[in-house]
């Protein structure tokens, strides 16, 4: 993101200067142009967030009319072990797949930063897993991770990846790492490219070694990029659904049931709409807080040039 902020900003700044002269325009036509998609957002994003809160104050099973119960669903969640277990699974997954893919992505980005034979090819190879159908990959990784499957076979180990409560989440995280390392690589590459050559050259002339350079120049300058990566990771953790749903069904013994999967099961499987909506609202509040922080930290307003 830091890529060419400066360039972009100056460009945007120039554009947002008031127009002088020119023919008179009906500026509200612009509003008209934005309305169709705004309508979709209101109907299918905004309305549901409000509606989620309303539903969360009721018990509702789709068949009998909802009854108002106040904040009972929220209070029930506090003592609900399934809920806390799902929160634990979601946090655990985020911690298992996140840092590992950052480190891998960063490492690869550092290796690909400067010219090297086959640079573009390498970049494509590492990036490709991020765009492949995640459902197809979940189904096939479930086969790859079998006890007698090829991953154990090649490593000559026998880890019961997906059938053991101790290892199932780790097994699912392996797929997560494989699918996101390339993504973070691209983001880090862009961040690294934005660090002026002159800065690193100057430090090198001053006798800084590679590690010192990393510590004193590269990492500090990449701080905003890391923040982006952290936010993306947290959101990805909260979204994670299909790997669990497909590879383990949330098992064994619910050891891989994420919050997203719990919402699905509570709502669309067990028809406890109120309770499912309450979990959703908690998730939403969490996302909202994250968004506000994100907008603040990144001065999104300035970034977009208004």
């Amino acid at each position: 993101m830091a890529v060419d902020t400066a360039r972009a900003r100056s460009k945007l700044l120039g554009l947002s200067l008031p127009r002088r002269g020119g023919p008179a325009t009906n500026e509200s036509t612009g509003l008209l142009f934005t309305l169709p998609i705004i309508f979709l957002f209101v109907a299918f994003n905004l309305l549901p967030t409000v509606y989620a809160f309303v539903v969360s104050l009721t018990t509702y099973n789709l068949f009998t009319p909802p009854t108002f119960v106040g904040f009972e669903n929220y209070l029930d969640l506090l003592g609900n072990r399934n809920f806390w277990q799902a929160v634990g699974v979601t946090v655990g997954y985020t911690l298992l797949f996140g840092p590992a893919s950052w480190i891998l992505g960063f490492l690869i980005a550092m290796l690909l930063k400067d010219t090297i034979v086959g640079r573009d090819l390498f970049r494509s190879v590492f990036f490709v897993p991020t765009i492949l159908s995640s459902v197809a990959m979940a189904v096939t990784w479930a086969l790859l991770l079998r006890l007698n499957g090829p991953i154990n076979g090649v490593l000559d180990i026998s880890v019961p990846w997906l059938t053991n409560t101790q290892t199932a989440l780790l097994g699912i995280s392996l797929l997560g790492i494989w699918q996101s390392a390339g993504w973070f690589m691209v983001i880090f590459l862009a961040g690294l490219a934005s660090i002026p050559e002159s800065l690193t050259e100057a430090a090198r002339i001053d006798g800084a070694g590679t590690l010192a350079l990393l510590r004193h120049i590269t990492l500090p300058l990449l701080r905003p990029v890391f923040a982006v990566v952290v936010v993306q990771t947290i959101v990805a953790g909260l979204r994670v659904f299909s790997p669990m749903f497909i590879m383990t069904g949330g098992g064994p013994a619910n050891s891989t049931r994420s919050v997203a999967m719990l919402i699905y099961q509570e709502g669309l499987r067990d028809l406890r709409m109120g309770s499912a909506a309450a979990i959703s609202v908690i998730g939403f509040v969490f996302i909202l807080a994250l968004t506000v922080i994100y907008f603040r930290v990144f001065r999104v307003r300035e970034e977009i040039g208004y």
């Binding site: 019961p160 059938t163 053991n164 409560t165 098992g251 064994p252 013994a253 619910n254």
Partner: peptide, 11 residues
């Protein structure tokens, strides 16, 4: 029950 049967059998 299924979850715990799985845990008892596999672990």
């Amino acid at each position: 029950i299924r979850g715990q049967l799985e845990a008892m059998a596999t672990q």
